[in-house]
């Protein structure tokens, strides 16, 4: 949700931070300190997390052998090859994004430009509500609705990569929709009138002028959607099958990086436990790549 808000604040509205409290005003000075402390709290916890993950995870990775860990294809209590989970996460994310993003972006265009007011008043809160539903509820829904359907249509256990993909495609919708809509709405209306005045239809104006102008905002919404898909755990663990095997097909089970941790954390100890933390390291690096991409896009947008 934090990222969501951050994304909708346009560069233009960003003001330079107040450097100093007003001279001589004690309360302002104290409040200044309070705010500073608040800011440091979040940075401090981030630093703690990084230290925890890397000090626990990295030694194991090197002890075990980095290539064996990253590219090993077998995972059990003594052998820790993470490749099945890495591929699982990547494939599930790609699948979810390729279904969720087109639907989300089209919904956003509809909401920003074509939606009648009465429908918008229903649609907007609905999308916001979607963002607020706990992931376990999504998981439960997928388990009871999507999984049996897949079992019926394609055979097999139903708990599968396809189930996870469809679930995540739904779960990234609110992120993609809200951010893309904000991006499209922030395009100056003067572009629209300019295009209309040239004799372009409203549709052409929207698709050839407004949407391209919102391109970088839409891309950031996609990047954040990817982040959400790759990080989701509880819902995925309910429907993905979770076998620690190389992905074999859409209707077969799959295990992702996140579910790998949650499946085994309860009983793991020793090197096994460290291997799970090391899974966290890999996940963390994925997220860092995604966030860096997001930042680069934001900066490009500002230019």
């Amino acid at each position: 949700m934090d990222n969501l808000r951050q994304g909708s604040i346009k560069e233009a509205h960003r003001r330079p931070p107040f450097k100093k409290a007003h001279k001589g005003n004690l309360i302002e000075k104290i409040m200044h300190g309070v705010f500073l402390l608040a800011a440091f709290t979040s940075i401090f916890s981030l630093v703690l997390i990084v230290i925890f993950i890397f000090t626990n995870g990295l030694p194991m990775m090197f002890e075990y052998g980095l290539t064996d860990f990253i590219f090993g294809q077998t995972w059990n209590r003594t052998t820790f090859g993470l490749l099945p989970m890495i591929l699982g996460s990547i494939l599930v994310t790609i699948g979810a994004v390729s279904i969720g993003v087109p639907i989300g972006v089209m919904t956003a265009i509809f909401m920003a430009e074509f939606c009648p007011k009465w429908l918008y008043e229903f649609l907007k809160p609905a999308v916001n509500l979607m963002a607020g539903i706990p992931s376990i509820v999504y998981g439960f829904f997928a388990l009871r609705i999507i999984v049996p359907q897949i079992r019926q249509l394609f055979g097999g256990p139903g708990n599968s990569m396809l189930a996870a993909i469809m679930l995540l495609a739904i779960m990234i919708l609110p992120t993609v929709i809200s951010l893309s809509e904000a991006a499209i709405r922030s395009v100056p209306r003067s572009y629209f009138s300019g295009s209309i005045a040239l004799g372009a239809s409203p549709e052409r104006s929207i698709f050839s002028v407004l949407v391209p102008a919102a391109k970088s905002g839409i891309f950031s919404s996609i990047v954040l959607g990817v982040g959400r898909a790759i990080g989701e755990t509880m819902a995925v663990v309910m429907v993905a099958g979770n076998q620690p095997l190389m992905p074999r097909g859409l209707t077969e089970g799959v295990r992702t990086l996140t579910t790998n941790i949650v499946m085994e954390m309860a009983y793991a100890s020793g090197q096994h436990r460290d291997a799970l933390v090391a899974t966290g390291v890999v996940l963390f690096i994925f997220i860092m790549i995604i966030n860096t991409t997001f930042l680069i896009m934001k900066n490009k947008e500002a230019k």
Partner: peptide, 27 residues
Amino acid sequence: NDLRKRVGMVFQQPNPFPKSIYDNIAF
């Protein structure tokens, strides 16, 4: 659309599209 093609308009605030100069004119 034909009417607006025949009667062009220039606005108070310059409003070129965020595209290349070429694409603006060719739009």
